[in-house]
Design a protein around this nucleic acid. Structure first.
Length: 615
DNA sequence: GCCGTTTTCGGCCCGACTGTTTTCAGTCG
């Protein structure tokens, strides 16, 4: 299997970390590795294809030496230089970097001066007081380390949806190729689009065995019966396998598929997450998929509902009456038998959806196809990798009618943020692109409506609450998103004032990634969210649901509360390269989990309607 | 380690915050 772009990025970044942990070397060398990793991540082409074509050095930040190393990685799946460096540092030292406030230099210091080789040793050092004696350390850092360790423990074992979902889909693909498999789907948290999941679950339906041979029953935990016992105990009504690996091994052609699946999981998941593949007789597929999709709370609600109707929910997820099972042919049929409207997976959390389905007041959830444009995208005018023209091409390929160019403002110097002058120059450039698009459109007389770039900006909300650009300039822009990027740890009162102040500014249309969280890595800012929602509902300022799977900010439950308080939303990707425009699915899923309908979301509107709303 | 040229080496997207210092190093965005 060829080494993918993401794997190359990870190795380059690890090398950068190792170089800095080891110290001594020029820090700029590490920076060069990081820069190359960023470039590779922004690529739309396969790095392996570029290598074959001898075009690796066309990647910004990749010269001769890095091209050779990437080539070695792509061809052999390993990199000797990486392995040499890794051998010099205990593997647990890199884990220290997962703590906020601990960078590679600190990790190196902890290791060399205190002999700290992993997170446990660091905790020991903090508790024993030896940490404080290190130069540059004091009581506050000691407390921060302990808090960081506690936070890490709280979320250990969970994987980001953005990481889990692609792997789940690839696994489902593999399983679907197994002879006899009639249907496959991810289940569990992945199917509900939970922001993080504990494990990846796949449910597959298999043609039922003829006679005593064929797919054997499973023997994993949860189903200790052997094949014969299963046959006698319940025959076709029982799971082929409640725990999957066992049954998979027994099916013809499956061992090989499983091996590939394991490889794929190993290559793509940073943490050792559990993967469950569940094979069930084809006729029980719908019931099993339903059973393994809903949260415990959702399934308990269904159980109660069934009981109130004199029905029982059997262990296979089918309804039973008087011991007679009635397997549903589809999930729709299952819910219908309970007198319920079909409940989409994203709502199956036990948050009132069963009651709503019974009363016919489930929302008409927003869908990806409702989205007509992306309102938050970066270009190479600041820290994005897309040119204006490249953005147009990528957005049209997704069927969008418009996209808002919203680069950073000047105070975010690291991103090359735009000052007043450059922002207005960019606006001219955007108008030029639009003029050309209009001419082309007329020349081609194509049926598709005209595509438009809109001129926007992601203006920074400064630590003192002021905006990073004067009102006069903001008034010139089509869409103004205001976001916090610095001093995210101010006290809640101060943070709330900053955001409320921005929401009250008449030129601000959207509050970008309102809480500033990075899932699993950075806690949301201390913030009076309800206070902010009140102001947004009153002023009509839109709240962003940032679709990046690392943010999903606002998150589902917060967005649902905001909707109840009368707020409207945008769902946007914050993309910095073309591929990230595809993150829209995660934003839409989060909006669905928040019970949002198309009317709640500004970028489901036509351009004319959007302009009316913003005015 | 890259890049651009000054064609063979010197500069490399910047600035603020934090906790620790009393002049700064590291982290972060």
């Amino acid at each position: 299997m060829r080494t993918g772009n993401e794997e190359v990025c990870r190795v380059l970044e690890t090398i950068a970390d190792l170089l800095e942990v080891l110290g001594g070397d020029d820090a700029r060398k590490a920076a060069a590795y990081r820069r190359a990793a960023r470039s590779v991540r922004a690529l739309d082409e396969d790095v392996a294809d570029l290598h074959e074509a001898g075009r690796l050095t066309e990647i910004p930040g990749v010269g001769g030496a890095l091209a050779r190393k990437i080539g070695e990685l792509v061809e052999t799946g390993r990199l000797a230089y990486h392995e040499r460096l890794a051998a010099e540092v205990p593997p647990g030292v890199l884990d220290l970097l997962r703590l906020p406030g601990v960078g590679p230099r600190t990790a190196g210091l902890l290791w060399r001066r205190l002999g700290v080789e992993d997170l446990e040793a660091l905790e020991e050092a903090a508790r024993s007081g030896s940490l404080k004696k290190l130069p540059g350390f004091g009581p506050k850092k000691e407390a921060a380390v302990l808090e960081g360790l506690a936070a890490l423990r709280r979320r250990s074992g969970r994987i980001l949806l953005g990481e889990a979902r692609p792997v789940a889909l690839a696994l489902a693909d593999l399983v679907s190729a197994v002879p006899g498999v009639t249907a496959v789907s991810p289940a569990g948290g992945v199917r509900r689009w939970c922001e993080t999941v504990e494990s990846i679950e796949i449910v597959a339906g298999v043609e039922e065995p003829e006679g005593p041979r064929g797919p054997a029953a499973g023997s994993g935990p949860g189903d200790a019966r052997g094949p014969d016992a299963a046959g006698r105990a319940g025959g076709p009504d029982r799971f082929v396998a409640a725990h999957v690996a066992g049954a998979l091994r027994d099916l013809p052609d499956v061992a090989e598929v499983l091996e590939v699946a394991r490889d794929r999981v190993r290559a793509n998941l940073r943490s050792g997450a559990g993967v469950d593949v569940r094979l069930v007789p084809a006729r029980l597929y719908a019931g099993a998929l339903r059973h393994f999709t809903g949260s415990r709370e959702h399934n308990e609600s269904l159980q109660k509902r069934a009981a109130s109707m004199g029905l029982e929910l059997g262990p296979e997820g089918v309804l039973e009456k008087g011991g007679r099972s009635r397997p549903a042919r589809s999930e729709e049929e299952f819910y219908s038998e309970l007198g319920l409207a079909y409940i989409p997976p994203e709502l199956r959390e036990g948050r009132g959806e069963v009651e709503a389905a019974a009363e016919g007041r489930l929302p008409r959830l927003v869908e990806l196809s409702d989205i007509r444009g992306d309102l938050h995208v970066h270009t190479d005018w600041s820290d994005g990798h897309l040119s204006l023209e490249g953005l147009v091409e990528a957005a049209r390929a997704r069927g969008y009618e418009y996209v808002v160019v919203s680069d950073h403002s000047r105070s975010l110097a690291v991103t090359g943020g735009l000052d007043e002058e450059r922002l207005l120059a960019q606006k001219d450039a955007i108008e030029e692109v639009n003029r050309r698009l209009a001419e082309e459109g007329q020349a081609e007389k194509d049926g598709a409506g005209p595509f438009r770039l809109l001129a926007g900006v992601e203006v920074d909300i400064l630590p003192d609450g002021r905006l990073d650009l004067p009102d006069g300039v903001l008034a010139e822009m089509d869409v103004v998103t205001a976001s916090v990027h610095t001093a995210l740890r101010q006290p809640g009162e101060r943070m709330t004032e900053r955001l409320v102040g921005a929401a009250e500014n008449e030129h601000v249309d959207v509050i970008g990634h309102p809480t500033g969280r990075l899932i699993g890595r950075r806690e949301p800012s201390a913030l009076d969210l309800e206070g902010l929602f009140e102001v947004c509902a009153r002023t009509g300022t839109l709240l962003e649901i940032n679709a990046s799977p690392e943010r999903l900010d606002l998150k589902d439950t917060d967005a649902r509360l905001a909707k109840e308080m009368g707020c409207r939303f945008t769902v946007s990707t914050d993309a910095h390269h073309a591929r990230a425009l595809g993150d829209m699915v995660y934003g839409v899923a989060t909006a669905r989990r928040a019970w949002l309908e198309p009317g709640d979301i500004a970028n489901t509107r036509s351009l004319a309607d959007l302009r009316r709303l913003l005015r």
